[in-house]
Structures are given as structure tokens and as C-alpha cells.
Design a binder for these strands. Structure first.
Lengths: 235, 235
DNA sequence: GGAGAAATTAACTCGTTGGATAAATACTGT
DNA sequence: ACAGTATTTATCCAACGAGTTAATTTCTCC
């Protein structure tokens, strides 16, 4: 056969393979946790042989850490584009909340990975040098917004930026990461479209009201579109 | 031997055994998750034979569900003793936050169990009939507090009690359940004594400020050195 | 067109683990 | 003290799963 080169049994593509492995691993680890994840399933999902995981990344633990680091890298990169400096302080906080909320909605595996890692008490993350370095700029970004808010009189109190960020992450993260059990015990579908809108309004209202001290208007402002329908039919 | 009954190879104590098994299982499941938990370790920790688990409770899944139900039962029982009706609304909310926070601090396994169950998307909890029934009274309790607050003029807005409770749980739960990774990325020990006190102050301030619209005073009130001891041993 | 390196497949090892079976031991009522 | 039942121990095993070894296929560069 001169020109029609015989169909190959497999293609070579080290870079692509590595990416497919990491993507498959992300799915698997977020769906089943570290212990529950199956190396063979990852291989299958990546359209690869099990041996490839060890060849391109490493053993299960190392694979897991690589996935985790990649996840952090991704969110911090996107956060960098938030550009809160040019918004007036309440608007900046609102945008930060909305971004965080939407990011978690768009990347549910990130939530699962963090939960998994916390169940392991960050044992793996502690060994990572990469991750520690990329958070201070973000904190400074928030600190600046708060300072500006206090100076302009928009905010009543100079809250610690780390506390504020943890609170924003808490309100969004917890609702989504625990929506399964919460939905069961409260007898509501917390992931329904309406419920999510209501939640976003609640969170923005809560945080801005606390910072500015103008609860009523703020709650109403964001709450406007959806008057209510507080479902409430547990048992 | 008539009186000095020869030392027995083992004592019979079905009730005690069952409790020891459940306790050991709680430890194991919260420490390693569902997939990571080892049946043999549970047996060992309970000072029992592996066969006992199957005899007294059931297979791994059933054991896990039993532990989970027990955990919910325990917290709801304690919450029942909160008695928020007799406090003025802001004080009632403050007590609710403090109780939740302290409960989570005292029962870290509860946090882990919930995380694990949410990673499984509440697959097991959905099969439980017991759990669903015990939450509406609690929601009503909060609803009443909010209504009273609005009527007395203390609160500026009639927030949905479920949203409010989820927010309180979020602020407390997330901080503790994710303290491992947060401590790493922010380079602070979030479980240090000072950090915990600061966090409690922040959360109470945030929520009360949002509800009452008097940020500054409230933040200062709770942020002060140590006005009083909010310890509050529930039940 | 061939040698050596890189990438991929196939097959195997070996400890672990959930669950099962059968036998032994303690307790109860009579 | 004896029979029957409840509780506990002692083994066993088949399946699984992580990681390894060795062979096979493709690529590159000369």
C-alpha cells in the first residue's frame, strides 16, 4: 500500500491523552471521591489503557492532586478577570457574589473536589506548593473594595476581607454542595430554577444589607421580580 | 465451680454491642467516607467480630444509613430545647447561630457525615422515612421568630425562614467543614481559638446587621474584646 | 529503511475487602 | 439439668482493584 497508509491501531497524542486523562479523572473523583474512584473507570472514560495513567501522570494519589491543583488554577484565573476596582463598592460585592454563585453552578465538580479534599483534612493540598501562592492578590482585591466602601460611606463597617470572602463562599457553596440533603429534609427542590433565583436574591440582599445597613431597600431591590411562593410543604 | 463462675470468654450484651457498633461506625464513616470506610476497622473499633455488624445492624449500606439517621436525630433533639419563643427576636437569632456553631464544633463527625452523604447526592437519605418528618416544626420555630421581629420593628424584612436557616447553617458549616483547605490557601489557622471567636462575632454581626439594618452597632457589639461569654451550653 | 525512543496495549500479580458459612458459647425457661 | 434460642467466634472465598511487567506499535531522525 503506497499512499493509503493502512489504518493505524492507535494514534499518538501525548498532550491530548494527558488532558483527556485529567478530565476523566476530574469526573471520576468528583463523582465518587478519592476512595470511591476507580482507576479502571478513569482509563475507560479517557479512552485509554490503565497503564497510561501511570505513564502520563502517576499513581492514584498523584492523579488526584493534579486534578485538584488544576481546579484551583481554573477558578482563580477566572476570578482575576472580575475587575472589581472599577465598580462602586456595593456593585462590586454584588458582582463577586454573582460570579462565585455562577461559577459553582457551572462547575459542580469543583465543589465535590473541595468536599472530598476537606474530608481528607487537606492532606494532599498541604503537599502542594503551587496552590498556596495564588490567593493573596485575591484577598487584596476584596480588601480594596471594602476600604473604598467605607471611605465613600457606602459601607458601615470595615469587615475583614477574608471573613467576607469566606462568608460569600459559604452562602453559595453550602447551598449547592448540600442541596441534596437540604432538599430532602425541607421537602423542596432547591435546584429548581425559581429556587436558585430566590437564593441568589437572598444572598445578595443579606450581604449588602449587612454592609450598607439598608436592609429593606436592598432586599426589595433584588427580590423584586419574584414576589414569593414559599413552597413549604414538608411532610 | 459453683460460685466463682468461671471467667467467660465473652459477655452477652446485645444493646451495648449495637451501640458500640454504631458509635464505631460513626467514627469510621466520618473519618473515611462511605467508600473509604472499612468494615473490619469498624468491628475492631467496636471490640467485636465482623459478623456482629451484619447480625445487629446489617450490611455496610444499612450501617451507614443507621448512623446518618442517628446523627440527624441527635441534632434535632438538641435544637428542640432551644426555646427561642421567649427571647426577643435579635437575641433569638443570636442564640440560634451560637447553638448551631457550637453544635458543629462539638460534633465534627456530623459535618463529615453530611458531606459524605451530599457527595452521594443524598442517595441513602432519600430512602429514609424517619428523617423527613422532623424538620417542619423547626422551620416553624424560626418563622415565628422572624414574624415577631418584623412586628416589633426589630427586623426590617420578613425573610423566608428556610433561607435564613440555610444561611446560618452555611456560614457556620462551611467555615468548619472547609477549614482544612481554607487554612491552607489563606495561610491562617482557622481553627485557632482566636480565629473561631472572630468568626462567631463576624457571623452574628453579619446576620443581625442584615436583619435589623443597624450594621455598625451590631458589628461592634459582638466584635468587642469579650463582652460576655456566649458559651451557651445547649440542653 | 532501519535503529532507537516514545507511546500504547495486553496480561498478570497480589493484597484487600465485603460478605457468607458453620461451629462454638452463653442465656432462658421449664 | 436439658432443650432451644440468642449471641459471638473462627474461617473462608470470590471479586475486585491498584499497580507492575513485558510485549507491541508508532514516531523520528539519520
Amino acid at each position: 500500500m503506497a499512499k493509503a497508509k493502512r489504518t493505524l491501531k492507535w494514534q499518538r497524542d501525548p498532550e491530548g491523552m494527558r488532558l483527556r486523562i485529567l478530565e476523566a479523572a476530574k469526573q471520576e473523583f468528583s463523582a465518587h471521591g478519592l476512595a470511591g474512584a476507580r482507576v479502571d473507570r478513569i482509563a475507560a472514560k479517557a479512552g485509554a489503557n490503565k497503564r497510561m495513567l501511570y505513564y502520563h501522570v502517576g499513581k492514584k494519589d498523584e492523579l488526584y492532586l493534579a486534578v485538584l491543583e488544576g481546579a484551583y488554577e481554573k477558578i482563580r484565573n477566572e476570578e482575576r478577570g472580575l475587575d472589581l476596582e472599577h465598580l462602586d463598592p456595593p456593585e462590586a460585592i454584588k458582582r463577586l457574589i454573582e460570579f462565585t454563585w455562577n461559577y459553582f453552578l457551572r462547575n459542580p465538580e469543583f465543589l465535590s473536589l473541595l468536599q472530598t479534599e476537606n474530608l481528607a483534612r487537606a492532606k494532599h493540598l498541604k503537599r502542594s506548593t503551587k496552590v498556596k501562592s495564588m490567593h493573596s492578590p485575591f484577598v487584596e482585591m476584596i480588601r480594596t473594595v471594602v476600604r473604598r466602601g467605607v471611605e465613600s460611606g457606602d459601607f458601615q463597617v470595615a469587615v475583614d476581607p477574608v471573613q467576607l470572602y469566606i462568608s460569600i463562599a459559604a452562602l453559595t457553596f453550602f447551598y449547592l454542595s448540600n442541596s441534596a440533603t437540604l432538599s430532602v429534609i425541607f421537602g423542596r427542590d432547591l435546584l429548581a430554577k425559581d429556587a436558585k433565583e430566590e437564593r441568589l436574591a437572598h444572598m445578595v440582599g443579606l450581604v449588602l444589607a449587612a454592609l450598607t445597613g439598608r436592609s429593606a431597600e436592598l432586599f426589595d431591590m433584588v427580590k423584586a421580580p419574584k414576589p414569593r411562593v414559599p413552597q413549604h410543604q414538608p411532610v
